[in-house]
C-alpha cells in the first residue's frame, strides 16, 4: 500500500473539512473495498478520513407513516439507516426485520461474517460497485441518499459503474426509504468473489409503484429493467415474469458467464425474488 495520511473524524462536518483540506483524500468507512484496492496499489489517496468514530452516522430509525394527520399507519414506514451502520447491524436489527425483512436478508448475504462486521451501507453506496447489492435495493426502493450537503434521489445518484452523483467533498450521512408493500431480492453470487453475478431487487411501494433494479449483470452498473417492471406492474407473479423477454444486450460477458447466461439469471432471480 502506498503511503497515506490517516485522520480520524469525530463528526461528519469534521470529516468534510478534512476532506476539503486534503490533496486527494478519501473517506474511509468500513474499508472493505477501499483497503483491498489500496493494497493492490490501484488506489493511492493522499489522505484517509476515518468515520468509524462518528457515532452520529450509525444506527437505524423507523418512523411510522402519518395517515389523516395524526393516526400512525402500519406499512410504508420511513426507514433511515446511518451511513456507518454495518451490514451485520442491518442484518440483525430486530425492528427493521419487522418492517422490511428483505433489506436485512440482503445485508446478511453481503460478503462474509467478518466483512459484514466492518463493511457499511454508506461505503457500499459511495463505492457503487457494479456487483454490489445495496445499489439495487436503493434504486428499487426509490431511496434517498443523504449527504452532508443535500439529499439525492437514488434515480439521480447511481451514474454507472463506480460512478455516483457525489461531488469530491461530499459525504454520505444516511440513506432513507419507505418500507415497501412487498419486496424481494434474488441474488446469484459469482462463484469466486461471491459478489452478485445477477442480483434483482423487486419492490412494490405502498402506493403501488413497481420498480425492478438489476445489479451485477449490466455492463455499466445497476439499472432498472423496464420490461420486468411493466410485467410486474400488470401482474405481480412469476408467471408474468416468465413471459418477459430479457435481452442480453448491454449485459456483461466474462469468464464466469456470457451475456445470455446473465440474461437468464436476471429472469430466474426475478422469479426467486418474488417467492
Amino acid at each position: 500500500m502506498y503511503e497515506t495520511n490517516f485522520h480520524k473524524a469525530s463528526t461528519a462536518q469534521d470529516a468534510a473539512a478534512l476532506l476539503a483540506k486534503s490533496d486527494d483524500g478519501k473517506i474511509l468507512a468500513g474499508g472493505q473495498t477501499l483497503i483491498p484496492t489500496m493494497k493492490q496499489r490501484l488506489a493511492a489517496p493522499s489522505d484517509l478520513i476515518d468515520l468509524s468514530q462518528v457515532s452520529a452516522l450509525r444506527g437505524i430509525t423507523i418512523t411510522k407513516r402519518k395517515k389523516m394527520g395524526i393516526m400512525k399507519a402500519e406499512g410504508g414506514e420511513t426507514i433511515t439507516i446511518g451511513a456507518m451502520t454495518t451490514h451485520s447491524e442491518v442484518a440483525g436489527d430486530a425492528e427493521l426485520v419487522k418492517v422490511c425483512p428483505v433489506i436485512c436478508q440482503l445485508a446478511g448475504n453481503i460478503g462474509d461474517p467478518a466483512v459484514r462486521h466492518r463493511g457499511t451501507i454508506g461505503g457500499s453506496v459511495a463505492n457503487n460497485d457494479p456487483a454490489a447489492d445495496y445499489p439495487a435495493a436503493l434504486l428499487a426502493l426509490g431511496a434517498t441518499i443523504h449527504t452532508n450537503a443535500r439529499e439525492i434521489a437514488a434515480a439521480d445518484y447511481f451514474k454507472g459503474m463506480f460512478a455516483t452523483a457525489l461531488t469530491d467533498d461530499e459525504i454520505i450521512t444516511a440513506v432513507s426509504f419507505q418500507a415497501p408493500a412487498v419486496a424481494g431480492y434474488g441474488k446469484f453470487p459469482n462463484p469466486a468473489s461471491r459478489y452478485a453475478m445477477a442480483g434483482v431487487f423487486v419492490a412494490k411501494s405502498v402506493e403501488g409503484d413497481v420498480r425492478v433494479a438489476v445489479t451485477g449483470a449490466g455492463d455499466n452498473g445497476v439499472y432498472r429493467h423496464a420490461g420486468l417492471e411493466a410485467a410486474l406492474s400488470a401482474d405481480w407473479s412469476a408467471a408474468s415474469v416468465e413471459a418477459v423477454e430479457v435481452s442480453a444486450d448491454g449485459l456483461m460477458s466474462d469468464l464466469h458467464g456470457n451475456a445470455a447466461y446473465r440474461a437468464n439469471l436476471i429472469k430466474v432471480m426475478t422469479k426467486r425474488a418474488l417467492a
Binding site: K8, G31, Q32, I35, D50, S88, P113, A114, H117, R118
Partner: peptide
C-alpha cells in the same frame, strides 16, 4: 476486534486505535 470477527488484513491499525 471488540468482540467481533474481522479481517485484520482489511483494516488499518490506526482504525483499531
Amino acid at each position: 476486534v471488540d468482540g467481533q470477527a474481522m479481517k485484520s488484513c482489511t483494516m488499518l491499525a490506526a482504525s483499531a486505535e
